[in-house]
Amino acid sequence: MARTNIWIPMLALVAATAYLQPAAAAPAARQRPAIERRGQDLLPSAQALRLSRAHKSAPAPGTTAAAVTVDDVGDVDSFDRNLKWLGVTNAFVTLDSACDPATTEHCQVIGPGQTNFNFADVAHITLPGKSAKSLMCYWFSPVINVTYSNPGPTPAVSLLRYNPTLTVDNPMLSDPALIDPNTGLPFGGHLTTSMTSSEFFQVPLPPATTISERTRDSAVCIAGFLNRRMMIDTYGFSEAQADEFFKKPMTIHLNVSGAVRGVALANFVFGLRIIGD
């Protein structure tokens, strides 16, 4: 009897079955960002919007932020620059009925009536050249402990006033052609700037009364005690000289002056930090 090959019909059946089956699904098309339908408008998803805005706002490689004007930001020289920490120091000033030079370096004896005081260089910070590019600011934190006293038989008003300033030494200020507009004379190696940190206290006291107070506050940077535009507009530097000024080493000295009346004791602690761009 001849052998029947059963594999041939089976292969044909398999082929026919494959032919009748539907073709495999095509690979899924790449999905577009999700959308949200509102009326007839198609709005991109929140994620798509964020990506689109980031792309539009990012500066092209190798470029800087778009140019700004004084009307836009006020200070175009320091715009978009990082803050730099440039040093910190503190100073101690005492007003008392007696001073011991061995324990109090900056001390003023309080006399009858009004007593004025004036201390130069109670603290300083020395910076290397190129510490800042166009702006230098102070953070100033005074702590004051004061005892007001009226030992007399009639009411009186006690007074405490102080005024800090900064003196800046810089080699550029030794140029005799550069004139200090405050004095009309050459700078002589340094200039002195005011600070928006002066304070004035008046305390009414009944007869035979003594009270003690502690005050604590801070003043921080706004325009800076020195900036490039100030060097040009206020101190008469050329643009090249203003740029060179910030490339030089400099020392910043803290000074304090003021007056007291009806004060038995006053202790000042001045914290000073310098920052720049």
Rank of each mutant, 00 (worst) to 15 (best):
N5W: 03
I6H: 13
Y19P: 00
A23P: 01
A25C: 04
A25H: 04
P27I: 02
A28F: 03
R30M: 08
Q31D: 11
R32T: 11
I35R: 15
R53W: 09
H55P: 00
K56G: 02
S57H: 08
A60E: 13
T63L: 10
D72H: 12
V76F: 04
K84M: 07
W85D: 12
D96V: 01
S97N: 11
D100L: 02
D100P: 03
D100S: 12
H106Y: 14
Q114P: 08
A123G: 07
A132M: 00
K133R: 14
C137S: 12
Y138A: 02
W139I: 07
W139Y: 13
N145F: 07
S158F: 00
L159R: 14
D169N: 01
M172F: 02
H190V: 00
T192G: 04
Q202M: 12
L205W: 10
E213T: 14
R214I: 15
A219P: 01
V220R: 11
C221S: 12
M230A: 14
G236K: 08
Q241G: 08
Q241K: 13
E244W: 06
K247M: 14
T251S: 02
I252D: 00
H253S: 09
V256L: 08
S257G: 14
S257A: 15
G258H: 09
V260W: 10
L265T: 07
G271K: 04
L272N: 00
R273N: 06
I274T: 00
